[in-house]
């Protein structure tokens, strides 16, 4: 069993491509493209879910104004060391 074209280093001056599975470059390209595009679709879906959750949280806490008031309170607490 050998995955690549190299079984010794005696004729290195004649070697070309030496990565495993020479000849599968087109398949690798298709797999690479698929990996890239799937990443975008999944990330966009994840981002939409994250934003929906954020908006829900903000609503639960009484809207953006209430969240900002709460943050201001925490900052003051941090500053006085509580």
């Amino acid at each position: 069993m050998a995955t690549g074209p190299v079984d010794n280093w005696l004729n290195i001056d004649t070697f070309g491509a030496i990565y495993p599975f020479v000849g599968t470059e087109m398949m690798l390209t298709i797999a690479g493209f698929a990996f890239w595009l799937i990443w975008h679709f999944k990330q966009i879906r994840k981002e939409n879910e994250e934003f929906a959750k954020d908006i829900e949280n903000i609503k639960k806490q009484g809207g953006p104004g209430a969240v900002l008031d709460d943050e201001a309170r925490r900052e003051i607490e941090d500053q006085v060391g509580q």
Binding site: I12, D13, T14, F15, G16, A17, I18, Y19, V22, G23
Partner: peptide, 8 residues
């Protein structure tokens, strides 16, 4: 990775 020899 390529050593510069003849192409396939």
């Amino acid at each position: 990775t390529h050593m510069g020899g003849a192409p396939v």
